[in-house]
Computed example of a mutant assay.
Amino acid sequence: MINPEEQSAKPPEDMIGARLDDEITSLQSQISSLKAKRNLQTATILSSHATQATLDRLRKAQTQPTPSAQADVPPDTNPLLAASTSQLLHNQENLYRACGTITTFRVRDPDPNAVDNGNVLGIRVDVSTTGKFINPYYLLLNKPFPDSELLRVHRHTLPPYIPLSSLVEKHLPTGKGSSAMSAKKAVGGKRQDLRRLVRALRGEIVAYHNRITAIKNLRKEFKLDEKASRKGKGREKFIADISAADAEAKQIRIEWVDGKIGRCVVDDDGGVVKCVVIGDEGRDREIERAVLRGRIEGIGERLMEGVY
């Protein structure tokens, strides 16, 4: 017969499993961090001028036919030279995408019945967030009207939360009275401006990703994505959830542990323009004023001022 005291002394299986999960998660995080550091250090070393000068000498020695020059080349330099070439191409691509955030190209529509003989103008928009480039967005335009320079959207890869329709209506109208992209504007017509359209489009994309990143940082700041077994460590949590309340992430929903619910409205520049917080006793004006004092990135710090 099992002694009740001995049975109570044994840790429950769920506690042991939770500890193992925490250890596995911690080890995986450490492995990911070490891999990221190794990749960063490798890229830094391969991109340095001293390393490039040494590798250039090795490349020249490999191309020289004299036996003395070949003897000075170590036998295991080929992988290093290949890694250096790959790193240089990667650096060049990143530099191009960082400086030339908007690029144009020409493609042809394979449809035999396509307008303008299938000629299509492509626009590529590159955006980076949290130190990484995301998949580029593409906008394809064609000329649907004969003997006219008017452009129309042919295809695009933009998500629905980017207001492309309103931007096109404003900067690229094709309706009655619209004029082509020239210096002269027709009387009573709207002039197409492709440059303003692309600039406004990229601004919307960058603003959206900045808002999404800010929401993710807020969740990380309040440790909302940690496992339930790890909760309770450190400071007591007073925020239950932070999330985007609409597709464009211009409205943020904040839920407190004590039941209060708030909603903030953010403008295109990331500033908090409106905020409503309602609890069991009505609106909490103090929290609303605190949230309204700055940008979306500082919401967490302003909320903590009244708690810690």
Rank of each mutant, 00 (worst) to 15 (best):
T77R: 04
I162W: 05
Q64E: 15
L81S: 02
L46D: 09
V206N: 04
V276D: 06
K170Y: 08
L218V: 05
V115E: 11
L34E: 13
R19C: 11
I134N: 01
A69C: 05
V277F: 05
Q52F: 09
V266G: 02
K184G: 09
R263M: 14
D225S: 10
T129N: 10
Q192S: 03
D268E: 14
A36L: 02
T77V: 13
G270E: 04
T44G: 06
P79Q: 07
D147M: 13
S84N: 05
Y161K: 08
N217H: 09
G100T: 11
E149A: 11
R152D: 04
K190V: 06
A240Q: 11
I287K: 01
P163W: 03
R57A: 11
R196S: 15
S128P: 01
P65Y: 10
A114Q: 03
H154E: 04
L172T: 00
D246Q: 06
K35T: 12
T51C: 07
L167K: 00
P146I: 09
L141C: 01
R263P: 06
E169S: 11
D280L: 03
E221D: 10
T54Q: 15
D72E: 14
I287Q: 02
V120D: 04
I24R: 15
G177T: 07
C275V: 00
A71N: 07
G122N: 03
N78E: 14
S26V: 12
P136L: 00
K170R: 15
Q62N: 15
Q87T: 11
G262W: 00
R196C: 13
L140M: 11
A247E: 06
D14M: 06
T77E: 07
P110S: 02
D111Y: 00
D147A: 14
N135R: 08
P110G: 03
D116Q: 07
E13L: 13
W256K: 05
A82Q: 03
S26A: 15
N117K: 10
K231I: 12
L218A: 09
R253P: 02
G271M: 12
G279A: 03
K185D: 09
E288Q: 01
I261F: 01
K231V: 13
